[in-house]
Amino acid sequence: MQPKYNRIVLKLSGEALAGDQGFGIHPGIVNSISNQIKELVELNVEVAVVVGAGNIWRGKTGAELGMDRANADYMGMLATVMNSLALQDSLESVGVETRVQTSIEMRQVAEPYIRRRAMRHLEKGRVVIFAAGTGNPYFSTDTTAALRAAEIEAEVILMAKNNVDGVYSADPNVDPDAKKFETLSYLDVLKDGLQVMDSTATSLCMDNDIPLIVFSLMEEGNIKRVVTGDEIGTLVRGK
């Protein structure tokens, strides 16, 4: 089985790591993700991962509660490091060599983010997990995924969701008449206000012509299916 993509960025939401429990890190979910990533590594796919932190903390929520927005966002960045270390531990337990790189230096637990070093790790078959967002407040982990994908010259961003299997015209969990899109352009996403990723990340992907595939993480083996060319989920592209 030949992969369609040779270098990918896998974007995992924090909520995906929590599973049905809704908060914290669900060991079964993390182990499932690790085994699916291992399948990609065995196909010689170079895998970079960006993990969110919604299972632990959201900077926007903190700001809404009256916290300083920058401080609230920095707390969210630190929460992504916790998720990244949990994923690293799980990956290495199944024999996948892994490196965590952080945008905020914390050398006791991870490497600082250095683009050329990240690309070298990927070339050596190591999974690289990008943590601590961009290192700046006001930017989401969606934007981090778009930025890192552009920097490391990834061929695609895979956005794995835990509650939907693609992009819909409305929330399918609320509106039974919501229409699922097979393909979309980034302009459609921006024009129609579709909740795929934030507008900064969407514009960055569009400007750098990076395709995005939105699909369900909850079905075992879906990550491999996407990478090997199965048409599941929704493809978002520049044109």
Rank of each mutant, 00 (worst) to 15 (best):
K4A: 12
Y5L: 08
Y5S: 08
N6Y: 09
N6C: 10
R7V: 00
R7N: 04
K11C: 07
D20Q: 14
D20T: 12
G24L: 14
H26D: 15
P27M: 08
G28E: 09
V30M: 15
I33W: 03
E42D: 15
L43Q: 03
V45Q: 08
A48H: 02
A48D: 03
V49R: 05
V49D: 05
V49F: 01
V50I: 15
A53W: 01
G54R: 00
G54N: 11
I56G: 07
W57Q: 14
G59Q: 04
G62S: 13
A63W: 04
M67L: 15
R69Y: 13
R69K: 15
A70F: 08
T80D: 11
V81F: 13
V81S: 08
V81Q: 10
V81P: 09
M82R: 03
A86E: 06
L87V: 07
L87Q: 05
Q88Y: 07
D89V: 10
D89S: 14
S90C: 13
E92Y: 15
S93L: 13
S93N: 15
V94G: 08
G95T: 07
R99I: 07
R99Q: 04
R99H: 05
S103R: 02
S103Y: 00
S103V: 00
M106G: 10
R107L: 09
Q108G: 06
R117C: 08
A118P: 06
A118Y: 03
M119G: 02
L122I: 13
E123S: 14
E123I: 13
K124F: 04
R126H: 14
V128H: 10
A132N: 05
A132R: 04
G133T: 01
T134L: 08
G135K: 12
G135Y: 10
N136T: 06
P137K: 12
P137A: 12
Y138C: 00
T141W: 07
D142G: 10
D142I: 06
T143A: 11
T144N: 10
T144W: 02
A145K: 08
A145Q: 14
A146S: 01
E151Y: 05
E155S: 14
I157E: 00
M159D: 01
M159I: 00
M159V: 04
A160D: 01
K161P: 03
K161V: 03
N162F: 01
S169C: 08
P172L: 07
P172R: 01
P172V: 01
D175P: 14
A178P: 13
K179F: 07
K179E: 04
K179P: 00
K180L: 00
Y186P: 13
L187R: 09
D188V: 03
D188Y: 03
L190N: 06
Q195I: 03
D198Y: 12
D198Q: 11
S199L: 04
T200C: 05
A201G: 12
C205E: 03
D207A: 14
N208S: 14
N208P: 10
I210P: 04
L212H: 04
L217T: 08
E220K: 14
E220D: 15
N222L: 02
I223N: 10
K224L: 07
K224Q: 13
G229T: 06
G229L: 07
T234C: 05
V236N: 05
K239M: 12
